[in-house]
Design a protein around this nucleic acid. Structure first.
Lengths: 241, 241
DNA sequence: CACTTAATGTAATCAGTGCTAACATTCATT
DNA sequence: AATGAATGTTAGCACTGATTACATTAAGTG
């Protein structure tokens, strides 16, 4: 019951199964065939699907285990507890985001174009990986320092944006403190990405209630996204070219 | 175990116990004293404290019932399920936010000053009611249409911002579509508020790791908040006065 | 007032969950 | 072949969300 619209996106999984022998997945437990090697990533991928379908709240490690044809407690060999799984997903997310932003940051475009491209990349990432994004910037995981590597991964990802900020300030001789400009631009980007995920999720596209003004605003802004982002950033950089 | 820093804020509760006979709260069940009248709001207030302390994930209706000296299933008389409680909190939040924004929106200031004041109000609300804010704009509650009144409350709250947008566009003859300008400004405000809640929650203030650059950016922007917000909004409105 | 009715609380119970502890199997390395 | 770390299994505890049937209260009606 309930319209739990499954807004799953393939990009959010994939990129897994780097190596390992890739045993035939089907098979009942207790027959001398231990899973081995691939279970951790398999659980993570499976978790993303479940969260996308029913939310973090209803994710059950036992259900994941069941789905993987594995004993109910097997997941605990890979994740100390449920939140550790979330943290692992978020960490992986930060790493991938960092990688993507670095690529566009190192292109040969002008600095302001690279900044815009980075912003777009950020928003694309949120679009393509909504569940991971929520884990990364939502409130489910409290203090990152409770999970090894998570805080560092988050900081590294931000660092890629930071580089661009330093550069744009120097090139354009902006009167901003680098940290403050970071706060401004980061807020703008994140706000847009975050609202789109949450508000656009409203109404499965069916009953189109009259109470969807906020949603319309975001849809309006989403059309011609790049141009609108440019307005936003240029506004913050104090120029209207 | 775990550094579950209890960042509770009094504003987040309060404003309750509107009327009712206010029976002496202490007393064991099964002694001919039914709670009556105040239990619903009592559960909501209690829930906020629990969520602030241990997160939504670990909130237990049974624990709330226990704390209220009430049978384990009593909460279900007031909330169909756990998420309905969250939804009730979010709905109340939207209503209070709407009220606050309306007040500043109706002041006698210039329109751009009122817009800035509204933005500040929004951010103050998030600061003072972090848990409610996360429920309102986070991903815990999926489709608002599943909860009666929630979608409308959200839309009404946005409506107060909307009024100001319409006015500023007309007065300043801005070349924006009203919906799009709403998307831009709303993103900026929400992004700042949201990041502050989530990122500033990192590190209980103790070990001050070197991996806190993102946090520093937000702190930098938080100092002189009003001035920075003004930069942000003026930037979007395309003026640098 | 007595009587009804809706609202609210209780009691008993169920399936499912996170997690722990003790044990089994496999893999990699020597 | 032997050892030890990694990984999976089995059994079980304490707890949770939720349902059902029943009890009590407050409020309204004649």
């Amino acid at each position: 019951m309930g319209g739990a619209c499954v807004r799953v996106l393939k990009n959010e999984i994939g990129k897994s199964m780097s190596s390992s022998t890739a045993v035939g997945t089907s098979s009942k437990p207790g027959k001398g065939n231990y899973h081995h090697g691939e279970l951790r990533q398999l659980l993570m991928d499976s978790a993303l699907l479940h969260i996308a379908a029913h939310g973090t709240e209803k994710l059950s490690l036992r259900a994941l285990a069941r789905e993987a044809n594995v004993s109910p407690t097997a997941p605990f060999r890979h994740f100390a507890n449920k939140h550790a799984l979330f943290a692992a997903l978020a960490t992986q997310g930060f790493q991938r985001l960092e990688e993507r932003v670095r690529v566009v940051g190192q292109s040969s475009l002008r600095i302001d174009e690279r900044l815009l491209a980075a912003a777009l990349t950020y928003i694309e990432f949120a679009d393509e990986n909504p569940v991971v994004y929520q884990l990364m910037f939502g409130s489910i995981l409290g203090d990152f320092s409770e999970f090894e590597g998570l805080g560092a991964a988050a900081s590294n990802a931000y660092g890629e944006l930071d580089k661009l900020l330093v550069e744009v300030i120097e090139v354009k001789q902006l009167p901003y403190d680098e940290l403050m400009l970071g706060g401004l631009i980061w807020s703008a980007i994140h706000g847009f990405a975050s609202l789109r995920l949450n508000v656009s999720g409203q109404d499965g596209g069916q009953k189109n209630a009259p109470e969807l003004r906020p949603r319309q605003a975001l849809i309006a802004m989403s059309e011609g996204l790049e141009a609108n982002l440019k307005i936003m950033i240029d506004g913050l950089l104090g120029q209207s070219s």
